[in-house]
Design a protein around this nucleic acid. Structure first.
Lengths: 99, 99
DNA sequence: ATAATATATTTATATATTTGCATTTGTCTA
DNA sequence: TAGACAAATGCAAATATATAAATATATTAT
Protein backbone atom coordinates (compact mmCIF):
# COMPACT_ATOMS: atom_id res chain seq x y z
CA UNK A 1 0.00 0.00 0.00
CA UNK A 2 1.36 3.37 -1.07
CA UNK A 3 1.51 6.37 1.19
CA UNK A 4 1.39 8.95 -1.55
CA UNK A 5 -1.03 9.27 -4.45
CA UNK A 6 -3.96 9.79 -2.14
CA UNK A 7 -7.56 10.00 -3.25
CA UNK A 8 -9.56 13.16 -2.66
CA UNK A 9 -11.31 11.43 0.22
CA UNK A 10 -8.01 10.51 1.82
CA UNK A 11 -6.68 14.02 1.30
CA UNK A 12 -9.75 15.40 3.02
CA UNK A 13 -9.49 13.00 5.92
CA UNK A 14 -5.82 13.85 6.38
CA UNK A 15 -6.63 17.55 6.16
CA UNK A 16 -9.39 17.22 8.74
CA UNK A 17 -7.05 15.43 11.09
CA UNK A 18 -4.39 18.11 10.71
CA UNK A 19 -6.98 20.87 10.96
CA UNK A 20 -8.08 19.36 14.24
CA UNK A 21 -4.52 19.50 15.53
CA UNK A 22 -3.72 22.93 14.09
CA UNK A 23 -4.84 25.08 16.99
CA UNK A 24 -2.71 26.43 19.86
CA UNK A 25 -4.93 25.02 22.60
CA UNK A 26 -5.27 21.67 20.89
CA UNK A 27 -1.52 21.38 20.38
CA UNK A 28 -1.13 22.13 24.07
CA UNK A 29 -3.63 19.36 24.83
CA UNK A 30 -1.69 16.89 22.70
CA UNK A 31 1.48 17.87 24.51
CA UNK A 32 -0.10 16.81 27.78
CA UNK A 33 -1.17 13.50 26.30
CA UNK A 34 2.20 12.19 25.18
CA UNK A 35 3.44 8.76 26.19
CA UNK A 36 -0.02 7.28 26.55
CA UNK A 37 -1.12 9.69 29.29
CA UNK A 38 -4.84 9.97 29.96
CA UNK A 39 -6.48 13.12 31.33
CA UNK A 40 -10.05 14.17 32.13
CA UNK A 41 -11.84 17.21 30.73
CA UNK A 42 -11.59 18.96 34.08
CA UNK A 43 -7.87 18.29 34.39
CA UNK A 44 -7.24 19.75 30.96
CA UNK A 45 -9.58 22.66 31.61
CA UNK A 46 -7.61 23.48 34.75
CA UNK A 47 -4.19 22.92 33.20
CA UNK A 48 -4.92 25.20 30.26
CA UNK A 49 -7.03 27.69 32.25
CA UNK A 50 -9.75 27.80 29.62
CA UNK A 51 -13.53 27.42 29.97
CA UNK A 52 -14.92 23.96 30.61
CA UNK A 53 -17.20 24.18 27.59
CA UNK A 54 -14.36 25.35 25.39
CA UNK A 55 -12.21 22.47 26.61
CA UNK A 56 -14.95 19.97 25.91
CA UNK A 57 -15.44 21.47 22.50
CA UNK A 58 -11.75 21.16 21.60
CA UNK A 59 -11.64 17.60 22.87
CA UNK A 60 -14.74 16.80 20.86
CA UNK A 61 -13.08 18.07 17.70
CA UNK A 62 -9.94 16.03 18.34
CA UNK A 63 -12.01 12.94 18.99
CA UNK A 64 -14.33 13.48 16.05
CA UNK A 65 -11.39 13.79 13.65
CA UNK A 66 -9.74 10.63 14.92
CA UNK A 67 -6.90 12.20 16.88
CA UNK A 68 -8.09 11.26 20.36
CA UNK A 69 -10.15 8.51 21.92
CA UNK A 70 -12.05 8.74 25.16
CA UNK A 71 -13.18 6.38 27.85
CA UNK A 72 -15.72 7.15 30.52
CA UNK A 73 -14.92 6.07 34.07
CA UNK A 74 -17.65 7.07 36.46
CA UNK A 75 -18.17 10.81 36.32
CA UNK A 76 -14.94 11.36 34.48
CA UNK A 77 -14.10 10.97 30.84
CA UNK A 78 -10.47 10.29 30.09
CA UNK A 79 -9.02 11.40 26.77
CA UNK A 80 -5.90 9.92 25.20
CA UNK A 81 -4.08 9.72 21.87
CA UNK A 82 -5.55 7.29 19.38
CA UNK A 83 -2.29 6.75 17.52
CA UNK A 84 0.91 7.05 19.56
CA UNK A 85 2.79 8.37 16.55
CA UNK A 86 0.61 11.47 16.40
CA UNK A 87 2.93 12.96 19.01
CA UNK A 88 5.51 13.00 16.26
CA UNK A 89 3.54 15.58 14.33
CA UNK A 90 3.61 18.00 17.22
CA UNK A 91 7.27 17.30 17.89
CA UNK A 92 8.13 17.66 14.22
CA UNK A 93 6.42 21.02 13.86
CA UNK A 94 7.80 22.19 17.19
CA UNK A 95 11.28 21.38 15.98
CA UNK A 96 10.69 23.38 12.79
CA UNK A 97 9.44 26.38 14.75
CA UNK A 98 12.60 26.45 16.81
CA UNK A 99 15.08 26.47 13.95
CA UNK B 1 16.32 22.69 24.51
CA UNK B 2 13.02 21.06 25.27
CA UNK B 3 10.47 20.13 22.67
CA UNK B 4 7.48 20.23 24.96
CA UNK B 5 6.43 22.94 27.38
CA UNK B 6 5.99 25.44 24.59
CA UNK B 7 5.24 29.10 25.09
CA UNK B 8 2.03 30.58 23.70
CA UNK B 9 4.03 32.12 20.88
CA UNK B 10 5.55 28.77 19.97
CA UNK B 11 2.15 27.10 20.16
CA UNK B 12 0.79 29.69 17.79
CA UNK B 13 3.65 29.34 15.36
CA UNK B 14 3.28 25.56 15.37
CA UNK B 15 -0.47 25.92 14.89
CA UNK B 16 0.03 28.30 11.98
CA UNK B 17 2.41 25.90 10.32
CA UNK B 18 -0.01 23.01 10.71
CA UNK B 19 -2.93 25.16 9.64
CA UNK B 20 -1.00 25.96 6.48
CA UNK B 21 -0.61 22.25 5.78
CA UNK B 22 -4.12 21.26 6.85
CA UNK B 23 -5.91 21.60 3.52
CA UNK B 24 -6.57 18.90 0.92
CA UNK B 25 -4.98 20.83 -1.95
CA UNK B 26 -2.00 21.85 0.11
CA UNK B 27 -1.41 18.30 1.29
CA UNK B 28 -1.53 17.24 -2.35
CA UNK B 29 1.04 19.92 -3.14
CA UNK B 30 3.34 18.68 -0.40
CA UNK B 31 2.99 15.16 -1.75
CA UNK B 32 4.36 16.35 -5.09
CA UNK B 33 7.29 18.05 -3.39
CA UNK B 34 8.75 15.09 -1.55
CA UNK B 35 12.40 14.16 -1.88
CA UNK B 36 13.56 17.69 -2.63
CA UNK B 37 11.49 18.02 -5.80
CA UNK B 38 10.93 21.55 -7.13
CA UNK B 39 7.84 22.52 -9.15
CA UNK B 40 6.56 25.77 -10.69
CA UNK B 41 3.18 27.35 -10.02
CA UNK B 42 2.00 26.36 -13.48
CA UNK B 43 3.10 22.75 -13.07
CA UNK B 44 1.21 22.46 -9.81
CA UNK B 45 -1.79 24.29 -11.24
CA UNK B 46 -1.91 21.74 -14.07
CA UNK B 47 -1.25 18.71 -11.89
CA UNK B 48 -4.00 19.62 -9.46
CA UNK B 49 -6.36 21.04 -12.08
CA UNK B 50 -7.13 24.13 -10.04
CA UNK B 51 -7.02 27.81 -11.01
CA UNK B 52 -3.68 29.52 -11.35
CA UNK B 53 -4.61 32.17 -8.81
CA UNK B 54 -5.85 29.58 -6.36
CA UNK B 55 -2.62 27.65 -6.77
CA UNK B 56 -0.57 30.76 -6.21
CA UNK B 57 -2.61 31.57 -3.16
CA UNK B 58 -2.05 28.15 -1.60
CA UNK B 59 1.66 28.30 -2.35
CA UNK B 60 1.78 31.75 -0.79
CA UNK B 61 0.24 30.44 2.41
CA UNK B 62 2.68 27.54 2.58
CA UNK B 63 5.59 29.88 2.00
CA UNK B 64 4.36 32.52 4.42
CA UNK B 65 4.03 29.96 7.21
CA UNK B 66 7.49 28.55 6.65
CA UNK B 67 6.55 25.28 5.01
CA UNK B 68 7.87 26.03 1.53
CA UNK B 69 10.58 28.17 0.00
CA UNK B 70 10.62 29.52 -3.53
CA UNK B 71 13.23 30.50 -6.06
CA UNK B 72 12.61 32.48 -9.21
CA UNK B 73 14.27 31.29 -12.40
CA UNK B 74 13.36 33.44 -15.34
CA UNK B 75 9.64 33.48 -15.82
CA UNK B 76 9.13 30.55 -13.49
CA UNK B 77 9.07 30.35 -9.73
CA UNK B 78 10.01 27.02 -8.26
CA UNK B 79 8.59 25.95 -4.92
CA UNK B 80 10.13 23.33 -2.66
CA UNK B 81 10.01 22.07 0.94
CA UNK B 82 11.86 24.20 3.44
CA UNK B 83 12.45 21.36 5.89
CA UNK B 84 12.78 17.88 4.42
CA UNK B 85 11.23 16.35 7.52
CA UNK B 86 7.93 18.11 6.87
CA UNK B 87 7.11 15.25 4.53
CA UNK B 88 6.92 13.14 7.65
CA UNK B 89 3.87 15.03 8.84
CA UNK B 90 1.97 14.23 5.68
CA UNK B 91 3.13 10.62 5.71
CA UNK B 92 2.28 10.29 9.38
CA UNK B 93 -1.25 11.58 8.97
CA UNK B 94 -1.71 9.62 5.78
CA UNK B 95 -0.77 6.46 7.61
CA UNK B 96 -3.31 7.23 10.33
CA UNK B 97 -6.06 7.78 7.77
CA UNK B 98 -5.45 4.36 6.28
CA UNK B 99 -5.78 2.38 9.51
C1' DA C 1 -35.77 11.19 44.41
C1' DT C 2 -32.43 15.02 45.14
C1' DA C 3 -28.16 17.25 45.14
C1' DA C 4 -23.53 17.56 43.54
C1' DT C 5 -20.09 16.89 40.20
C1' DA C 6 -18.39 16.07 35.39
C1' DT C 7 -19.26 16.49 30.45
C1' DA C 8 -21.61 17.71 26.40
C1' DT C 9 -24.56 20.54 23.56
C1' DT C 10 -26.93 24.58 21.96
C1' DT C 11 -26.86 29.14 20.53
C1' DA C 12 -25.15 33.51 19.05
C1' DT C 13 -21.56 36.50 17.66
C1' DA C 14 -17.15 37.47 15.90
C1' DT C 15 -13.57 36.21 13.01
C1' DA C 16 -11.09 33.65 9.45
C1' DT C 17 -10.70 30.91 5.22
C1' DT C 18 -11.62 29.46 0.49
C1' DT C 19 -12.39 30.31 -4.21
C1' DG C 20 -12.45 32.38 -8.77
C1' DC C 21 -12.52 36.45 -11.47
C1' DA C 22 -10.22 40.43 -12.92
C1' DT C 23 -6.23 42.89 -12.70
C1' DT C 24 -1.40 43.79 -11.96
C1' DT C 25 3.37 42.88 -11.76
C1' DG C 26 7.50 40.62 -13.34
C1' DT C 27 10.38 38.45 -17.00
C1' DC C 28 11.74 37.03 -21.46
C1' DT C 29 11.90 37.45 -26.57
C1' DA C 30 11.02 39.39 -31.05
C1' DT D 1 9.20 48.89 -26.79
C1' DA D 2 5.45 45.66 -27.57
C1' DG D 3 3.66 41.19 -26.97
C1' DA D 4 3.57 36.78 -24.65
C1' DC D 5 3.93 34.08 -20.79
C1' DA D 6 4.31 33.29 -15.54
C1' DA D 7 3.08 34.54 -11.10
C1' DA D 8 0.98 37.50 -7.55
C1' DT D 9 -2.62 40.52 -5.72
C1' DG D 10 -7.24 42.79 -4.68
C1' DC D 11 -11.79 41.86 -4.19
C1' DA D 12 -16.27 39.77 -2.97
C1' DA D 13 -19.36 35.95 -1.77
C1' DA D 14 -19.81 31.66 0.33
C1' DT D 15 -18.40 28.82 3.84
C1' DA D 16 -16.12 27.42 8.06
C1' DT D 17 -14.29 28.11 12.69
C1' DA D 18 -13.70 29.97 17.54
C1' DT D 19 -15.44 31.45 21.80
C1' DA D 20 -18.26 31.83 25.79
C1' DA D 21 -22.60 31.90 28.14
C1' DA D 22 -26.43 29.20 29.17
C1' DT D 23 -28.46 24.92 29.25
C1' DA D 24 -28.79 19.93 29.09
C1' DT D 25 -27.29 15.26 30.10
C1' DA D 26 -24.92 11.66 32.72
C1' DT D 27 -23.14 9.62 36.92
C1' DT D 28 -22.57 9.11 41.75
C1' DA D 29 -23.74 9.62 46.59
C1' DT D 30 -27.03 10.73 50.18
Amino acid sequence: MQINDLTIEQLEEAANMLKAIAHPMRIAILNYLEDGKKLTVTQIHELLKIEQSTTSHHLGILKDKGVLSSKREGKNTYYFLRHANLSNIVNCVSKCTMG
